[in-house]
Structure formats: structure tokens, C-alpha cells
């Protein structure tokens, strides 16, 4: 079973995303900020990461840069999922090593399309 780490400081969003991704057969791990998420990755690197941008402690962008420079951190497919809905943010995220980008609000079809796009479904 593929594992997906959901990183978002909103428990509501995590719950919605969890329900969608469990529906696609993922085993879910949750983190509410970038620091927690890095710890989770050190313990057990997931195949997929759904990543919010704005979070306390360590934001999604910093997390991504840290992830991509740690051993094995190039493996997970990272899909940003954020309210930062402008081209400048998208370009920054892709440049830092994101694989896809979801602009909130999202729904099941969007998550499905984006996960298919990066070969996770």
C-alpha cells in the first residue's frame, strides 16, 4: 500500500484530504507543520506528499527544500495544495522540486487528476 503524508495545519483540510486519499487506497500519515513532517519522513519516507504552503514552525516551501536535500528525499512525489493561487508561487514551488500543484479549494476530481498526472494513481 502506498503511503501519503498529508501536511496541513488545518485539521479540517487534513480530514478532507485523508478521506479522499484513503478512497484511492493510500495509507495516510498526518503532520501539522513542516518540522513534524520532516521527522515523519526521516522515520519512514512516504511515496506521496500533499503539502500546504502557509504553516507555523516551518512552512511548506522550507519543508520542500529541506526534504529534497535529505537522503532519499528525492523519492516522494510532492503535490502542493495551497491557497497561494498565483503564478509566482507556482513557479517557486516547481523550482524547489514540487511535482504538481493544487490551488485550493480542491475536490476529489482535482486530487485524482493531479495524482494521476504524477503517476501515483
Amino acid at each position: 500500500m502506498k503511503r501519503c503524508l498529508i501536511i496541513d495545519d488545518s485539521s479540517v483540510i487534513r480530514k478532507v484530504a485523508r478521506r479522499i486519499l484513503e478512497g484511492f487506497g493510500f495509507a495516510i500519515v498526518e503532520a501539522s507543520d513542516g518540522r513534524q513532517a520532516l521527522d515523519a519522513c526521516r522515520k519512514d519516507m512516504p511515496e506521496a506528499i500533499l503539502l500546504d504552503w502557509n504553516m507555523p514552525v516551518m512552512d511548506g516551501y522550507e519543508f520542500l527544500r529541506a526534504l529534497r536535500s535529505m537522503p532519499g528525499g528525492d523519492k516522494p512525489k510532492v503535490v502542493f495544495c495551497t491557497t497561494e493561487n498565483d503564478l509566482a508561487h507556482i513557479a517557486r514551488a516547481m523550482h524547489a522540486g514540487a511535482d504538481e500543484y493544487i490551488m485550493k479549494p480542491f475536490d476529489k476530481e482535482i486530487v485524482q487528476a493531479k495524482f494521476q498526472e504524477v503517476g501515483l494513481l
Partner: peptide
């Protein structure tokens, strides 16, 4: 709409071929 460009359009294509 934002919804329409997220169902099937790869993000690279959005960056390359669309303006906001």
C-alpha cells in the same frame, strides 16, 4: 475557471500556456 484548469491540465502546461 481555476476549477477547469485543474482537471487534467498538468501544472507545467498551465505555467507555460496560461496567464492569470
Amino acid at each position: 475557471s481555476q476549477f477547469e484548469v485543474q482537471r487534467g491540465l498538468p501544472i507545467q502546461m498551465l505555467m507555460q500556456h496560461f496567464e492569470q
